[in-house]
Design a protein around this nucleic acid. Structure first.
Length: 506
RNA sequence: GGCGCAUUGGUGUAGUUGGUUAACACGCUGCCCUCUCAAGGCAGAGAUCACGGGUUCGAGUCCCGUAUGCGCUGCCA
């Protein structure tokens, strides 16, 4: 039997990283087992579903490299089937019409309302099977329905017994029928509800394994009952531990902002493979200790058995830009940027430079070799793709900013630099060929002759050439910048030092 | 309130059928390297395995209880 799994998000907002992880696990399992990975958009809530959200889900999956195998299924298109199935259950006596007028519920206060009602019911000892319409004679039920009276359809759950299923991650699960109410399948306006739609669609799509968030674990019992009422084979279930905020609370956009949205990672310079790798490690662990895994290896090592049970905390610090998302995710991204094959990184750098208006077509033509060497040189200390256009700006443009701390530390402290730097430029102009070794020799000799430490000139040069206090080995930077740009930038500090003197700032 | 699930250093996780000093990664500290910052190398701090009982010669690993957290409990998904 071919394995068929699905990712079934509701398009009511951005793609949440928790949902993205569910998609990843489903995808990995399908690829590992040679099965099919399907996508179903659960847009039954017409009020909240948006096309924009669907688009962002599609984009997010594409970004992560999770391709799906068959046509996307839109759940709303199946509504007629869902309704028909519910009616069949009514005819078969497995569900019944509930003519109780609809209770108005305010979305914002439902949770509280549920708890209050449950408390009250517990105190009074209410029977879940006490619905007055549950055992209404078929003739009367039919007559009222034909007469046009509005009704909801509820599944008729047996008075005695238990449901069982074996969850691949959480083990055997059992729930007494007494704990389950006669769930509503169809609203009184005829609209099919979640549990019904999911089950019908999963049957229809031939889903063999349902892999989803643990928040559905207890609901699964209801769904098992539905499969049974429908006479369908119950699939295998594997529930995933949830991803929580640092305070162990729910990770939500409302409270935590953009860190929970997958597209944020794309927009803030993450390499897809890095984020995918990080996500895979949240709630799942490989059989060995190797954590950095290219996609093929992830597929090879993935197994449902490796899924954990404890909820994971997504560790980020809301008000600290340095730790805006999980440290390990940031580290992993840096790791990928500095170690991934250069040919794979190049297009990403290109996209970033293009977005920052720093891209020049020559980089893929006459200056291709230079471009590759430059990226290779600077990639090693970058954390995100954004760094190529920020800290790395000076490599690609004459219009770059000077880091204030760098200027203070490397330039302002030594007034002699005003004369030394242009003199150094003169000296470097003589260097031929302009290679890192030759430049080093020239600079060190110049330092000797002028009686200053080489480090002084090196650090000052770094700031003059790149605007930064930190960066790659300076002689490599000289070589990459080239003779012309290097000497020009060394000299460009003179008027600037003059200005400082006038201000009495030196 | 009821039911369910979970609980290993700050975070993510390993811990095989219970058996010597609880392992790995991120983060953190120090040292080396050095033109800076990373990377890398080395060293280190940090966990009485939520708590309390029990079973056992022996428990992170089994049992019971408690606490805490999360989830579900809706004519939302």
């Amino acid at each position: 039997m071919t394995i068929r799994v699905r990712f079934a998000p509701s398009p009511t907002g951005y793609l949440h990283i928790g949902a993205a992880r569910s998609a990843l696990f489903n995808w990995l399992f399908a690829r590992k087992m040679g099965g099919k990975f399907l996508l179903r958009i659960e847009d039954t809530d017409l009020q909240r579903s948006t096309e924009e959200s669907t688009r962002s889900i599609l984009e997010g999956l594409a970004w992560l490299g999770l391709d799906y195998d068959e046509e996307v299924v839109f759940q709303s298109a199946n509504a007629p089937k869902h309704k028909a199935a519910a009616q069949r259950l009514v005819q078969a006596g497995k569900a019944y019409r509930d003519f109780t007028p609809k209770e108005q519920r305010n979305d914002a206060t439902v949770k509280q309302g549920i708890a209050d009602r449950a408390r009250a019911q517990a105190a009074e000892g209410v029977d879940q099977r006490a619905n007055p319409y549950r055992d209404l004679p078929k003739e009367e039920s039919d007559r009222r329905a034909v007469a046009g009276e509005a009704y909801a359809v509820r599944l008729k759950i047996a008075r005695e017994g238990k449901t069982h299923f074996e969850d691949i991650a959480y083990g055997p699960q059992e729930r007494d029928y007494a704990e389950i109410e006669d769930l509503v399948l169809l609203r009184s306006d005829g609209h099919p509800l979640y549990n019904l739609s999911v089950v019908i669609d999963d049957i229809e799509m031939g889903i063999t394994h349902v892999i989803r968030g643990q928040d559905h674990l207890t609901n699964t019992h209801k769904q098992v009952l539905l499969y049974q009422a429908l006479g369908a084979k119950v699939p295998q279930f594997a529930h995933l531990p949830l991803i929580l905020a640092p305070n162990k609370g729910k990770l939500s956009k409302r409270k935590h902002g953009e860190v929970v949205s997958l597209t944020t990672y794309r927009d803030r310079g993450f390499v897809p493979a890095a984020f995918r790798n990080f996500l895979a490690l949240l709630g799942w662990s490989p059989p060995d200790e190797k954590e950095i895994m290219p996609l093929a290896e992830l597929v090879e090592k993935f197994s449902l058995e490796g899924i954990g049970r404890a909820n994971a905390i997504f560790n980020f610090q809301e008000n600290d830009p340095r730790h805006w998302t999980d440290d390990k995710a940031l580290w992993m991204n840096a790791e990928y940027i500095r170690t991934m094959p250069l040919v794979e990184l190049l297009p990403m750098v290109k996209a970033e430079l293009r977005a920052s208006k720093l891209w020049r077509e020559e980089y893929e033509d006459d200056e291709r070799e230079w471009f590759e060497k430059a990226v290779e040189l600077i990639r090693h200390r970058f954390f995100t793709l954004k760094d190529f256009s920020a800290q790395g700006r000076a490599y690609f443009s004459e219009d770059f900013d000077f880091d204030e701390a760098a200027v203070t530390k490397n330039l302002k402290k030594e007034p002699r630099l005003k004369e030394l730097l242009p003199a150094l430029a003169d000296r470097l102009e003589q260097v031929e060929p302009f290679t890192k070794d030759a430049v080093e020799a020239a600079l060190r000799q110049f330092a000797d002759e002028t009686g200053v430490k080489a480090g002084l000139l090196i650090n000052a040069s770094r700031t003059m050439l790149t605007g930064q206090a930190v960066g790659p080995s300076m002689f490599e930077v000289f070589e990459i910048m080239g003779q012309k740009r290097s000497t020009e930038r060394l000299r460009s500090g003179v008027p600037w030092f003059d200005a400082l003197e006038e201000l009495g700032d030196v």
